[in-house]
Design a protein around this nucleic acid. Structure first.
Lengths: 222, 222
DNA sequence: TCTTCCCGTTATGTATACACTACGTCGGGT
DNA sequence: ACCCGACGTAGTGTATACATAACGGGAAGA
């Protein structure tokens, strides 16, 4: 694999996991030494991170890990609302129910798996959600929309790892996802979009409450 | 200005204008020689173009100007629908009518200016549309959404320059824009979104008809 | 004659040297 | 004591040399 890809993935993973905290400086030489590659691939990786919105140019000379505030999370959900409702709507309109049949079965089992409380059930649920994303991408068959969705998912992953997920929330999310999938299978574009809206609304409420509980002072997270 | 920025803008402009036709190869050394800079800034420019979706990696070694087919134009409008309806909705919800008052006046004058048939009126209309975009950005105040919108506008500009604009279509577009602005000023988020949907629908119909008329064989444009 | 393998060419991928600019700091002046 | 300016430093911006891998052509074998 190319060194620039490795550098990009390494830095991205560290940003998503919070190892590189919001506001942390991303200097070329420093990261090059740390990652064991030269400045050239690091430079490319940093440019990609900036394009992703995971890094922000604070000044002409300093690049920082993007902040993650309640405001930016709300902004993310405004974008997700636009993109994911459209994706659900289009997926329903494409009329490929067989593509989502397996997901329906998996999502029907999810509440039970999550109730068991073991780690495996949780990992399995996340895999199911990833599979749903993949099937949505395949169904909408729209490179531009998929690209925008992928970028939004990047930020979503960052929020997800910041906001601890309670089992009850995950079970609710699974049933919300199930409704979306059933609407798509039924070819009901309107319901698919509205169910997505509901899901995002609940998810945002939970995320904001979760980080509020963790950081009563909003500025600490800012 | 940085050489990488100049290279990026030069290449982007050439792609949007069709000087670099869809499918044209974008080789580092060739473009570096042509633009009079070294490979390094060209490399950065090409990476940005690929991130924008204006260039596509056909194989691990060759980067090409992205194709512009009826399918990709339809896909672009599916994305614009998602983003611009949301932007209009949010702009209406932000309740900053004074921000759009000037635009309303300008759009009310546009049909007359476009009717006069001179070049100045047309250029003035495009400036008004750009100003509308800028005010929308300022009103939604959402960096992620703005980023996605900017990218969509890039592709829109490419389509616009491909599809010749008839004066009658431009006058209709101006009145569609006026309705959107009035809805935003009135704080009617639903109307703003629906008016945007209508505008995009009409715009897509015109764009597809226009390129169909120019290239009866759909594959020529592909 | 077609297919396949090998080699040369040419492109990209990476490292590094050099140039330049922005920022901080120190000194002098007011 | 505060402010302004100049200098040094550190980091990015660019160019280029080298490494590497993919693609095409040609030759040999089936």
């Amino acid at each position: 694999m190319r060194a620039s890809d490795r550098a990009y993935r390494a830095l991205r993973e560290e940003i998503l996991d919070g190892v590189l905290a919001p506001g942390a400086a991303l200097a070329e030489v420093e990261q090059a030494n740390r990652l064991g590659v030269s400045r050239t691939p690091v430079r490319e990786a940093l440019a990609r991170l900036e394009a992703d919105g995971l890094a922000t140019a604070a000044s002409p000379r300093v690049l920082q890990v993007s902040e993650l505030s309640a405001a930016s999370i709300t902004a993310l959900y405004e974008l997700r609302e636009a993109l994911e409702e459209q994706a659900a709507r289009l997926a329903a309109m494409r009329r490929e129910p067989e593509r989502f049949a397996g997901l329906r079965s998996r999502l029907q089992l999810s509440p039970g798996q999550l109730a068991s409380g073991d780690e495996g059930g949780l990992r399995d649920y996340y895999e199911t959600v990833d599979a749903l994303d993949a099937e949505l991408d395949a169904a909408v068959a729209n490179p531009l929309l998929i690209g925008a969705l992928r970028n939004a998912r990047l930020h979503s992953a960052r929020v997800r790892r910041l906001a601890r997920q309670h089992p009850e929330r995950l079970r609710a999310a699974a049933s919300e996802h199930l409704l979306i999938v059933e609407a798509i299978i039924a070819g009901d574009a309107s319901l698919a979009a509205h169910a997505t809206h509901v899901h995002l609304h609940m998810s945002l409420r939970h995320a904001l409450a979760s980080i509020e509980a963790r950081q009563p002072d909003g500025h600490r997270v800012a």
